[in-house]
Nucleic acid binder design. Sequence first.
RNA 1: GCCGGAGUGGCGGAAUUGGUAGACGCGGCGGAUUCAAAAUCCGCUGGCCGAAAGGUCUUGGGGGUUCAAGUCCCCCCUCCGGUACCA
Length: 949
Amino acid sequence: MGDQEHQSNEPPIAFRYTAELAGELETRWQQHWDKNNTFHQPNPGDDDFDSTKQKYFCMDMFPYPSGAGLHVGHPEGYTATDIVSRYKRMRGFNVLHPMGWDAFGLPAEQYAIQTGVHPEITTKSAIDNFRRQLKRFGFSYDWSREFGTIDEDYYKWTQWIFLQIYHSWFDPEANGGVGCARPISELIEEFKGSKRTVKLNPNAAEYSGAGDLPGGTDAGAWEKLDRETRKAVVDSYRLAYLSQQTVNWCPMLGTALANEEVIDGRSERGGHPVLRKPLRQWMFRITSYADRLLTGLIDVDWPKSTKTQQAEWIGRSVGAEIDFPILDDGEIMGESLRVFTTRPDTIFGATYMVVAPEHPLVEFAIEACEGKTDVGKLQAYVELTRNRSDVERMENKEKTGVFTGISVKNPATGEPIAVWTADYVLMGYGTGAIMAVPGQDQRDWDFAKAFDLPIVRTVTPPPDFDGEAYTGEGVATNSRFLDGLEIEDAKTKIIDWLGEHHFGARKVNYKLRDWLFSRQRYWGEPFPIVFDERGDHHAVGMDTLPVSLPALADYEPAVSDEPQPLLAKAIEWVNTTAGEAGVAELDPDAKVRRETNTMPGWAGSCWYYLRYCDPKNADRLIGQEAESYWMGDNGVDLYIGGNEHAVLHLLYARFWHMVMYDLGIVHTKEPFGKLFHQGMITSFAYQRSDKSLVPIDQVENRGTEENPEFVETATGEAVKNITAKMSKSLKNVINPDDVIAEYGADTFRLYEMYMGPLEATKPWNTRDIIGLYRLMQKIWRLCIDEATGELRVTQAADDQVEKQLHRMIAKVGEDIDRLCFNTAIAAVFEFVNTAKSLTEDQMDRFVRTIAPMTPHVAEEIYAKLARPGSITHADWPDFDDEMLIDDEIEIPVQIMGKLRSKIYASPAANAKELEEAALADERIKELIAGKTVRKIVVVPGRLVNIVAN
RNA sequence: GCCGGAGUGGCGGAAUUGGUAGACGCGGCGGAUUCAAAAUCCGCUGGCCGAAAGGUCUUGGGGGUUCAAGUCCCCCCUCCGGUACCA
């Protein structure tokens, strides 16, 4: 405080690199870039488009513009893509580096409920704030391509894509069995022309396993069918379909959620409890693409962990479906219970069956098995499990169940076995029924023990095995004709046997479920669908898009057990005519009601990368020329974002892309050629001994700087200094605006890139920022006279500096290519620490090298050097390979692998020369005296190792 | 439980292909400058032994392969992320 008096006595250094100076030059250049459209990238077909250049599509995961503004996590990935984009421009690429807004979503709607302010108003002001903050970082986005998912021009095409999916079906035989989406009109033509058997889609999830196929599986000739049956058949093929089904209902959010959005029985957003409730919903037949979604992962350059996560979510498993004939008083009655198993080889050990409580056979048993089992108990069990939430199910894994009274015949042993129901079998996977093999499955073992059911081992465990169920390798036993076979051979043999006797066949199953696409919220894209008076759905006409979201008087969800979508409140909007809605197949005056569900937040993010390529196109979602150029061979060349999207967004977007690929809208098989996840930025936090966390302002250090002793102020309890997620409640959130005000944007960019590897989780440490601020000052002082603000140029080039400059250029370029920004910055440190003065030409190359990382200061010095145009479009400096080689290098000499001496030699010295030089070294001579040299390993240019004892 | 990733000085981290472990930054110590401080500049900074030269130990722990291991192999521990009654 008092220091200021003294400071004011000093002569001011007018052009020192301070936060004020940084702020001045940064905002000046940001305005300049804005005014001159410096980052504008023309499209193919534009007058100023340079078609000789290769493309580079470099993209961030666009943010949800929250009212809280940018978090320090946002600029981490954004700085990385900005550095790469600027670098690639300088390397002569046409760079597509866009930004937009993922702007539909719950927070704005929740806020609207509280305040009555329309979400559009709050969202738009949040966008303005985000844009202001991003511009303050100097990111080189082509802002002319900016859009939000809430823009009508944009969601018009989101709705359009929905209709493309709605109007399509998946032909699994197409493309030699790979499968392909085709227009639904082609399917109908094939039905009409009798080129295809008219039947319900055998792969339709809404029908499978339940045995409730209306009109049977084979419907007969198309002409003879009534309207309802035709419709049921066609809808069973559509890639977008309506289904009355049990959904994940979240009462707190007032909406149903996709499986991917439910984590441990709670909502992914907010962590609210999720219940199971039947609801009529729009679904996407993403399961048709399970195999392509899986195999497509092989060729993309994505983090291994992300590929694994998606692969596991898809959950392919190979096994067999086996029919167990249902017995009526010991006689086969014609119906069978079908199960899926990955271990058909263990069928001789299948001593009982289990079906899920929702399985139709249980319903049948309740009606038909009076006297064979306690039907009341059975019914009570079904009731109990239905009301049990997922959270409860996960917490309590004790095996429970009831005998259904039904028996089936084990086709392998011929023995009758009992059918039980238990909630450890899930209706949603396989056929909702299993053959229980307690000898080889721990869950079945636990159940068998709990209910005293027989256990037969069919794989011989090792002699020292002392566990319960044995799941390891071994040979079959107690399995008649399989005995002695290894598991894989036994599987093949039993599947063949089952096939011959018509008991079953090989089958591939997936964990992936169809994608629930309806939400009962307001702030989302309306569906381009109407319902006629019979309740049948119709697509609105393409030329009536967009179906605009109507304003509402209030956004409060109706409190009701029967969920009611909010849009139902917009009565005038809901009720329209077929003519208005552009439904050609109905009479124009026919009354129709609009779909009142909205699309989930994922819809807009499923295809935004395509719109960036051609954001203003009014006629198509993307022009052909733009698509072909920007998507190129690889799709998006670099896509950076958080790994929280490893499954959700990245799986959904791939699915939409694949459908669009099949329909000829895009030409690459995958949307994102290279994907990278930036790590989380954490913060320091304090933890009590019970592992609970204490807000940062309730802790004090009662020790010293070197030996800190942190205690909670209120209680005096010792707390541990740890790193944890930044959160409001811990008061350890860093606001990027504050950091920029204190140090400038270039320093901020450098700091986040220097913290560590881009992918690593790293703690924010304000103490460390100063080092990067000092680097900025050193860069500035190296080029600018702090007293005059003029360039500081020397005439005579220093050889050593010249050499270092070449090295830095080589290192920085190489490190940017491999996204190792921390080591690139270390190379800049090394250069600046060595170089005391630069020639004009050296300075020019120096600032071009640092320009991708610190664009403002680089642009300022470049302008002072009076170079024409923006440094943005300057060429990346060349370096000379010759300059990277030293005249003489240090070669370590080891004896028995331990460093004993160093010799100096030409980097070109061969093995013989190095060996001689090493043996001639005084210290080495001394150390090997009296020993026998057994071997000398020489790695030219690296080291000499003498094996002597 | 299963799947992925990680564990290196006081702290963040480097070591790209098995070849000098600790680049670079922070912090710390010492010095120059200053009436003094800030800022800046210079030097030192993994532990232990030693006055020094040097020696010795050291990349979570234990074993192994190799002339040579932070890096490869086997076993174990800890932390982070994902996932889970998926048959």
